[in-house]
Design a protein around this nucleic acid. Structure first.
Lengths: 227, 227
DNA sequence: CCAAAAGTGTTTGCTCTACACCCATGG
DNA sequence: CCATGGGTGTAGAGCAAACACTTTTGG
């Protein structure tokens, strides 16, 4: 029951799992803790929610502080509230995950606090502070799951991208090879991306560039996109 | 960034969308607020999270206080943190939903506070306090979605149930008729429920009773169960 | 002209859907 | 014996999976 009294309150934080593609791998941004507890350990970017700040804005602020990026795909994951998760006392954390494009200019150094920041491939994570390993594991599960029935994948790519790049993105995250023709047919049928008139050349034949259709519904209701 | 200082903290509550089947309809338990703000309006059961209490336990406690029920399917929904959602100040709420069996003995009167409690069919909700209409709408969406690829439906039925009852449950919640033979084939194929040796008689031919297989994985990974 | 990646359709198998009749009981 | 809900199989359609060759460019 609501009451206006003020009991002692748990502290409230946000933590953000920031995903990107780097060196053809899915990576997560971690920062090295300067203070106790877990001083020296790696942890997710996160911090306290201030009194007037919406939760999503707090998550965006963490993203901005650690990467310098102002806009990204951001989604609430889960709220972690085990009373023992922080040795300093009761701290409840609302976890988010963010996808940032592989071409974004990230200053992964010198966030608001002088702590070190680094990208870690998802399969080479160190042991993290608090319950952050669990949070990342859950974030990864959600991301994979989401790829299967939506088209969020392109949020990890530059604004314009080729179908080959998109397919590689899916393969990296899902960890399996996909059939080129089936992939193209389905991703286009979903109607979430559209061809541009531009091409990208490099090795081999130039590839048509595609982009997100801002008017599209990002979720494909009907059925899973991939096996 | 974490710091051990203590800024002013948002208040933290849990709210619980309690679903049940009554009179062949999906219903939600609401309580009438005795106090300001929104005095007299209906609202979700909910309350402050105490310092040592896990979130899920706080949600269970609310469920117990309002219904007298100790065990039920319970799942975290989403965390609502708009700074303006409560006129008294900053209140962040972790929302849960619960499914309680249609045969459970609910004392829907005289919870811990003397406020009135009542079941409302999901399509006859009054205008609720705070953002509680949004929370219920989201809870319903999640429940429907979950029915399509898992078998949570039976959580709303007695321990033993017939396939006819289960199918009616699905039809009530999804709001569409399902084909009997296809329903049975798929729900059994999913391997989440198993036949007992008992039967239930009433009108017409007695029906075999089924029950949940406690050892089963509740989620059917592969594919949606229903269209 | 060779290497590299882009681009493109068709066949096959499987899964989902639609559909109708007999069975067991209680009144 | 009649009314009521329980229980069962199959054929056809639509979707998903598997599969190989041609095209375009840069070096």
């Amino acid at each position: 029951m609501m009451s206006a009294s003020s009991h002692p309150r748990p502290a409230l934080t946000v933590d953000v799992v920031i995903f990107t593609l780097k060196s053809s791998r899915l990576q997560v941004l971690l920062i090295q803790r300067a203070r106790q507890p877990f001083a020296g350990d790696w942890a997710l970017p996160g911090g306290f929610v201030s009194m007037e700040e919406p939760l999503e804005e707090a998550a965006m602020r963490e993203l901005l502080e650690e990467t310098g990026i102002r806009e990204a795909y951001l989604e609430q994951l889960y709220t972690y509230g085990d009373p023992d998760r922080d040795p300093r006392g009761r701290v409840v954390s609302v976890a988010y995950y963010a996808l940032i494009p592989s071409d974004a200019q990230v200053r992964s150094q010198g966030g608001s606090d002088a702590s070190q920041a680094r990208w870690f491939p998802i399969d080479e994570l160190p042991k993290l502070a608090f319950d952050h390993n669990d949070i990342i594991a859950y974030g990864l599960r959600r991301l994979r799951y989401k790829l299967e029935y939506s088209a969020v994948g392109f949020q990890l790519l530059p604004e314009d991208f080729t179908l080959g790049e998109l397919q590689r993105t899916y393969e990296i995250i899902l960890g399996e090879k996909l059939d080129k023709r089936n992939f193209r047919r389905r991703i286009l049928q979903a109607g979430i991306i559209e061809p541009t008139h531009r091409f990208k050349s490099g090795e081999g034949r130039p590839a048509r560039l595609y982009r997100y259709r801002p008017d599209a519904v990002a979720e494909v209701k009907a059925r899973r996109l991939f096996p």
